[in-house]
């Protein structure tokens, strides 16, 4: 049986390399009963469409980012809260444990079986004007964010001017001053060539959003238990490989942008940025009182 496997990232990207290993492992261990076939580069559609397709069983496996997942599974919006994780290790610890299981349960209700959690790094602000040391440095600067109310609030609370914009428009807009900056992880900052035009990268690590390897529930339920086990193990192994490759890729990208003359700076006082998020959190909890305990439990993970 062929399992169509969806990924937004292009061939050669850590996620896709790991998915290819996953496909190989599964095909071999099931002796061809299950043959995942990877369609990279989003050729089968963008993520919201791919999620619908997975829920309908048209694609069997998806490598989804939890950012846009919030529109479908509201609990995952928690993962889009700025500074919800202190660092990557914190995220790994939480998602690999009981917290991750709670997200899996929420996803499962929407027909999505999450098997393992990948990295998408931590996102920081970059801009064409100056190093950002304190929130005051963002004052009046136009930052592109993804279309999500939480990200808009985040930039607005920091004093910037949040500008939702299609990803493809960002390079030209940075170059010509339509916007002053954007935010992303090192690999995307590098592969999008935004570093050619935005010379200041300030490590705020404001968003650490995990990705999943997910299987359609309809497909999963029809898979015999022994094959389920094989698939789950392969997915966990693939996530480990991806985290490893991601870290390497991230370092390589960092080196490349530094060689290209990008000025990278640590922020003076990370807590000033975190404190500014207080209204974002309280508005979120006010709207989603049932998710407050989840937030507290994530923060409590040591």
């Amino acid at each position: 049986e062929t399992w169509r496997t969806w990924a937004i990232h292009p061939e050669g990207y850590p996620n896709v390399v790991a998915l290819e290993s996953f496909a190989e492992d599964v095909a071999e261990a099931t002796e061809g009963r299950i043959e995942p076939q990877v369609y990279p580069g989003g050729v089968l559609g963008a993520q919201p469409d791919a999620i619908e397709q997975l829920r309908a069983g048209a694609i069997a496996v998806g490598n989804f980012n939890m950012g846009p997942m919030g529109e479908i599974v509201p609990a995952t919006n928690v993962l889009s809260l700025p500074f919800i994780f202190r660092d990557i290790d914190h995220m790994h610890k939480a998602m690999d444990g009981e917290i991750g299981q709670r997200f899996s349960d929420a996803l499962s209700e929407a027909g999505i079986v999450a098997l393992s959690w990948m990295d998408s790094g931590s996102r920081s602000f970059y801009n064409t004007k100056k190093p950002i040391m304190t929130p005051a440095d963002m004052d009046g600067l136009k930052f592109r964010v993804m279309s999500n109310d939480l990200y808009v609030q985040m930039v607005d609370e920091l004093g910037g001017n949040a500008t939702p914009m299609a990803y493809g428009e960002v390079y030209q807009s940075l170059k010509t001053g339509v916007i002053d900056g954007a935010e992303n992880n090192y690999p995307s900052f590098e592969s999008s060539n935004h570093f050619e035009v935005a010379k200041y990268y300030s490590i705020t690590n404001h968003l650490i959003i995990p990705e999943c390897i997910c299987v359609a529930k309809s497909v999963w339920d029809e898979t015999p238990a022994e094959d389920q086990e094989i698939v789950r193990e392969a997915a966990i192994a693939a996530a480990e490989e991806q985290r490893q490759l991601w870290a390497e890729r991230s370092d390589a990208s960092k080196q490349e942008v530094m060689d290209a003359g990008v000025e990278i700076n640590e922020v003076e006082d990370a807590s000033a940025f975190q404190d500014a998020m207080e209204p974002v959190y309280s508005r979120f909890i006010e709207k989603n009182p049932d998710l407050e305990s989840l937030i507290r439990d994530i923060q409590a993970v040591k």
């Binding site: 469409d49 619908e52 048209a58």
Partner: peptide, 19 residues
């Protein structure tokens, strides 16, 4: 044997493109 709605999802998302 693919669900039809995926085709029509593409019809919609094909024009919901910013550029």
């Amino acid at each position: 044997g693919l669900p039809l709605f995926i085709g029509f999802q593409r019809v919609l998302s094909g024009i919901s493109v910013f550029s």
